[in-house]
Amino acid sequence: MVEAAGWWSLLVAPALLLAGAVLAVAGDALLAARDAGRPRSAVAAARPLLEVPRLLAAQPRRMPAPDRLLWRLGVVTVPVSAVLSVLVIPFGHRTVADLSVGVVWFNAMEVFTWAGLWLAGWGPNAVFSLVGGYRFVAQGLAYELPLMFALITAATGAESLRVGDIVAAQQGLWFAVWMPVAFVVYLAGVSALCFLGPFGYPVGRDIASGVLGETTGADRLLLRAGRWLWLVSGAAMAVPLFLGGGAGPWLPAWAWSSLKTLLVLAVLVWVLRRLPVLRADRYVEFAWVVLIPLAIVQALVPALVVLNR
């Protein structure tokens, strides 16, 4: 059902991802305006985009004895891996490439970001930045396994690692309905990857924005864009994995894909503002002792269903 699109998709997919990120940033700006008691308007929503020219015009800084190579490598990895992750995300009936190992590809790209942001924290040779980088490692150690289990649960339900097959396996009943734990864990894991809101521990206010603390100019722009790109990519991947992909009545498949993606994105942006930052000293234990066993039990459900099919 899902098939690979032509060369044009190589440009359209990143463009759609970017458009989604701009929408997410605008939505977040409106929520921020409401909290701060500012008028909510189109101008208020668009103002964060002024960051782009501001950061492009900024003077570069030279830190004492930085690890320049790893720093730059880490910064670039975050947005690049976000863009690469859309390779396997279907939009309606089309995808850039319907790899036979699509789920593993998405997983691998997301692991790149765990490494990238740690490097970005290590690079500048600054205490708060380093602490932020390690906080992200702790976050990764806690959320990566539950997230992998969530991906595997969906793959088990379809007995395939191909995203197209996973969509096809949801004809009739969405995975989100009978794999609710995997769905929630997936969303939490993806948000943790974006270090936004309650998962903003590595860029916390308490450590003067941690990993982002010493970056300026294009580096800062790429890191900050990368987190929003990942949020959109995560929301878009939730649709084929758990919400039946482009399936739906009346509208064409691409419309259902975008609608569902925007809905997941809106929920994430809203929820992420509602919670304080979750810290490692509380969630590492929680993730290992509660989330992982829960995720395993959830993975058992589709395995048994598939066995009796």
């Binding site: 492009l56 015009a57 003077q59 570069p60 800084r61 600054a126 708060f128 930045s129 603390g213």
Partner: peptide, 15 residues
Amino acid sequence: LRSPAEPLPAGPFES
């Protein structure tokens, strides 16, 4: 676009 293009010798932020 940046100017000055000359990097600013800076140090880490430590309050």
